[in-house]
C-alpha cells in the first residue's frame, strides 16, 4: 500500500514588491509517497527551489504562501507557527542544500554538531547520541569514523562534507528529505557517490525525497517521478521514463533536445528560441507560448494547468490547438 508523505495542493508563493506582486510559485500540486524520489527540474528562476523552501517554511520575507495547502503525512504544516515549524524541520523534514558549508558551522566539530542535532530531536542521552552520530557517519560512508568525528568541517573534502550534511538531515529519521541541488557543487565521480547514497537511504528507510536539480541526467538516474517547472508553474509531471523518453509538453521536449548526447554527435543541437520570461513579465495564457512552435490562440489566452500526471499544455489537454 502506498502512503502519501507529502501532499502539496495548489501552492502559490508570492513576493510583494514596489512594482507589483510577483508570483514565484503558481498553483503547484504534487505528492510524494513513502520511499519515493520525486525529481523537480527546471531552469534557474523556474521556482523549483522556492517550492522546496515553501515546504520547509523557510521563505525569505516578503515572500509568503498566498494560497494552497501543504500536508505532511496527513498533518497540515503550512499554517504552523514558526516555533512549531522549527520542530517539524529537522525532526520530520530534513534539508540538504547545494553548498554543504552553509549547513555546517565551521567553528564546531562535526561530531558535536551531529550530537547536538540528535539531542534536540530525540530522547537520547549524551553517549547514546554520540554512538548514533558514529552510526550515521558510517551509514553515509565516511571512513575512519572514530578519528573523523572530532574533525572540523574544513578538514573534510566537498564530497565528505555533503555526506555529513546528509547524516545531519537523517539525525531524527525524518519522513521527508528535501535535497536542493545536492550534487551541483561536486565533481561527477563524487556526484555519482552522493546520488547512490540518497537512493539507498530512500530505499532502506522508506524516506520520501524531493530532489530539486537542473540536471536531467541526475533525475533520469535517480528519481521515480519527475515534475518539470517553467516560470513558476508545473509544465509536466510523470514517471521519469515517460518524461525523459516521451515528453508531452513542448518545453520538456525542447529541454531534452537541447542536452548534448553522449552517444552521438548530432551536429546542431536543438534549441528553444529565446529565454524563460522574468517573473514580472510572464505572458498571458501559457507562459511558454511565445517560444512554442505549436502555440494557438487559446494558448495566448488561458493558462493550461495540470494537477496530477500529465502536461499543462492545451495540445495534450484538448488534443488539438484550441
Amino acid at each position: 500500500m502506498t502512503q502519501t508523505v507529502l501532499d502539496v495542493r495548489n501552492l502559490r508563493v508570492e513576493f510583494p514588491t514596489r512594482h507589483g506582486t510577483l508570483t514565484a510559485v503558481d498553483d503547484i500540486s504534487l505528492t510524494i509517497e513513502r520511499g519515493e524520489i520525486l525529481g523537480v527540474v527546471g531552469e534557474s528562476g523556474a521556482g523549483k527551489s522556492m517550492t522546496g523552501m515553501a515546504i520547509l517554511g523557510l521563505l525569505e520575507p516578503p515572500g509568503r504562501i498566498a494560497a494552497g495547502e501543504i500536508h505532511l503525512s496527513g498533518d497540515r504544516i503550512d499554517t504552523l507557527t514558526e516555533p512549531h515549524m522549527q520542530r517539524v524541520r529537522g525532526r520530520r523534514i530534513g534539508a540538504i542544500f547545494q553548498d554543504p558549508l552553509t549547513s555546517l558551522n565551521p567553528l564546531f566539530r562535526v561530531g558535536d554538531q551531529l550530537v547536538e542535532t540528535i539531542h534536540l530531536h530525540t530522547e537520547l542521552g549524551k553517549s547514546a547520541a554520540r554512538q548514533r552520530a558514529m552510526d550515521l557517519m558510517r551509514e553515509v560512508g565516511i571512513p575512519a569514523v572514530e578519528e573523523r568525528i572530532d574533525n572540523y568541517p574544513h578538514q573534510f573534502s566537498g564530497g565528505m562534507r555533503q555526506r555529513i550534511v546528509i547524516a545531519l538531515a537523517l539525525c531524527a529519521e525524518p519522513e521527508l528529505i528535501i535535497a536542493d541541488e545536492p550534487t551541483t557543487a561536486l565533481d561527477v565521480s563524487i556526484q555519482a557517490q552522493i546520488t547512490a547514497l540518497l537512493k539507498r537511504l530512500c530505499r532502506d528507510r522508506g524516506t520520501a525525497v524531493m530532489l530539486v536539480t537542473h540536471d536531467m541526467g541526475v533525475i533520469a538516474e535517480t528519481a521515480d517521478r519527475v515534475a518539470v517547472m517553467y516560470a513558476g508553474r508545473l509544465a509536466e509531471l510523470g514517471a521519469v521514463e515517460d518524461v525523459v523518453r516521451r515528453p508531452q509538453h513542448p518545453y520538456t521536449e525542447g529541454l531534452m533536445g537541447s542536452i548534448p548526447s553522449l552517444h552521438s554527435d548530432e551536429g546542431e543541437l536543438r534549441m528553444i528560441p529565446g529565454s524563460m520570461p522574468r517573473l514580472g513579465s510572464i505572458p498571458a495564457g501559457c507562459a511558454f507560448n511565445p517560444r512554442c512552435a505549436h502555440a494557438g490562440p487559446r494558448c495566448r489566452r488561458e493558462i493550461p494547468r495540470t494537477h496530477g500526471t500529465g502536461a499543462a499544455c492545451w495540445l495534450t489537454l484538448e488534443g488539438e490547438t484550441a
Partner: peptide, 21 residues
C-alpha cells in the same frame, strides 16, 4: 569518468559508483 556521468538516454539506475576522491 565515462561510467559516472549520468546518462539521459541509457540511465544506469543501479550503478555501483567508484569510491575515492
Amino acid at each position: 569518468l565515462l561510467d559516472t556521468i549520468p546518462d539521459l538516454e541509457a540511465p544506469k539506475r543501479d550503478r555501483a559508483p567508484m569510491g575515492g576522491e
